[in-house]
Amino acid sequence: MSENIYHDQIIEWSKRTDHIASLKNFHCKATASNPLCGDRISVEMELNGDVIKSMAYQVKGCVLCKASSAVLAERARGLRFDDLNVIYSELDKALKSSADNPDSFPEGYRLFFPVRSHKSRHSCVLLPFNAVDKAISEYRASTLKEI
């Protein structure tokens, strides 16, 4: 039997509903889904330039996807797009890494350390990032058009 990825911290985060909402004023939004399991997350973000002022989401997904959504929404406030990209990239890299070191995970995301050995579940953790990345890309594309 393999390492338990459903530890208390992940279960606890998966139950948080602080940012499960719709924003009255949002600048960008996007939906990402996983065709294998049916997980779906829709995100909305209020921005100040390239800084995220707030993020809200609606999610239908597994414990990992819900926990990751909650962590991301909690930590997104005040981040620049580039900062978020770095976290996304580091998290992706840490999940794929064979290093047995929780410190390879970005701060705030170390609870996902046990997921690294479950390759088919990486996409559950990364799905909220896919949605945010899509929202930002579409926002950037639309602002470029306006220029």
Binding site: S2, I5, G61, C62, V63
Partner: peptide, 14 residues
Amino acid sequence: HPHDICQVMNDRHG
């Protein structure tokens, strides 16, 4: 969620 069930069933019960 089905994946949560599958994961717990594998990890805790083989």
